[in-house]
């Protein structure tokens, strides 16, 4: 177990393309950190730099007190779970789990003990002698996790481990991963593009965009106080409304900001409300409905418990503390 420190970490490819720039963060021992962002934002590259699978061109990675920039992946005391699991197809589940330990010269008895223990935790005991191709997607996922667990590493690195599973299994495995991490208290770095996965798993999440860190914080901090329009639009579903302030001139503070952000659930129907919305589409979700429309030319979405019809005109209001103000040019949050 160990803390991980990223110090001015950056990566420039030989061609001159910048993948990651100037990342600074301190990951505490036992913390669960999720790196989240759209595809191409550099989150996987960042993870692979920690793993030692990508070279580091700027800054430092420290695991514990040790600078590991040039240390081989195998010697960094980390374990990784891959998106496609990367199980060795010709080895049985048991051999897959044992391979890393065997290469380290762990004793036979110790290997057996650890494999059995991991199999017990993950309930894959009955599959130990099967080949990966005889397993279902969810079972392969467990084996991939098992391969990480048996190593008893200082940190787990997860690279979109759930994105090859169907929706239902993904939710179940998400819970299991969370539970497992709580139990083992192993420092974890987890990459995903799914903001829901990020919100539910993370102690703290790191929102990345274009190779730069947009915001680091607990899920609630990030949700409540998004640092930029990018974070505001990325975290939360349905996404926050980002409206040019001239479309909503009657909202408090709109004179000082270029862009006003309001979460759909923070807008309420109010006959005296300052916003007038023409309804263009209604999506029925059962318990509630998503109502899409526009006000003064700006798109707007709200979640509504009550009924709404196409072409209705609704008047809406929002609490002053639910309004987020952003600079029009930089997209940064205004105090």
């Amino acid at each position: 177990m160990a803390s991980i420190t990223l110090d001015n970490l950056g990566k420039v490819y030989p061609g001159g393309t910048r993948a990651v720039g100037d990342v600074n963060m301190q990951i505490a021992d036992g913390e669960f950190i999720v790196l989240v962002g759209p595809s191409g934002c550099g989150k996987s590259t960042l993870l692979r730099m920690v793993a030692g699978l990508e070279s580091i061109t700027e800054g430092e990675v420290r695991i514990g007190d040790r600078v590991v920039n040039t240390v081989e992946p195998a010697d960094r005391d980390i374990a990784m779970v891959f998106q496609n699991y990367a199980l060795y197809p010709h080895m049985s589940v048991r051999q897959n789990l044992a391979y890393g330990l065997k290469n380290r010269g762990t004793s036979k008895a110790e290997i057996t003990r650890r494999v059995d223990e991991a199999a017990e935790i993950l309930q894959i005991g009955q599959f130990l002698d099967r080949k990966p191709r005889a397993l279902s997607g969810g079972q392969r996922q467990r084996v991939a996790m098992g391969r990480a667990i048996v190593r008893e590493p200082a940190a787990f690195l997860f690279d979109e481990p759930l994105s090859n599973l169907d929706a239902k299994l993904r939710v179940a495995m998400r819970l299991e991963i969370k539970e497992l991490q709580r139990r083992l208290r192993t420092t974890s770095l987890y990459v995903t593009h799914d903001q829901l996965e990020a919100m539910t798993l993370a102690d703290r999440l790191v929102v990345l965009n274009g190779g730069q860190v947009e915001q680091i914080g607990t899920p609630l901090e990030v949700y409540r106080n998004p640092a930029s329009t990018f974070v505001a639009g990325f975290i939360g579903s349905p996404a926050m409304n980002l409206i040019p302030s001239r479309a909503v001139p009657h909202l408090p503070g709109s004179a000082h900001a270029g862009i006003i952000g309001i979460r759909p659930e923070d807008l309420a129907v109010d006959p005296d409300g300052p916003i007038e919305m023409q309804v263009r589409a209604v999506e029925e979700l059962g318990a509630q409905r998503l109502v899409h429309g526009h006000t003064n030319g700006a798109d707007l979405t709200i979640t509504l418990g009550s009924h709404a019809d196409l072409h209705d005109t609704l008047r809406l209001s929002a609490q002053p503390e639910a309004l987020h103000r952003f600079d029009e040019k930089t997209g940064k949050r205004l105090a």
Binding site: A51, E72, M80, Q83, A86, Y88, Y99, R104, R147
Partner: peptide
């Protein structure tokens, strides 16, 4: 062969 195979092997100390 998937790249992840060699990556997994490297992490496994091969």
């Amino acid at each position: 062969m998937p790249d992840e195979l060699v990556e997994a092997a490297r992490i496994d100390g091969a």
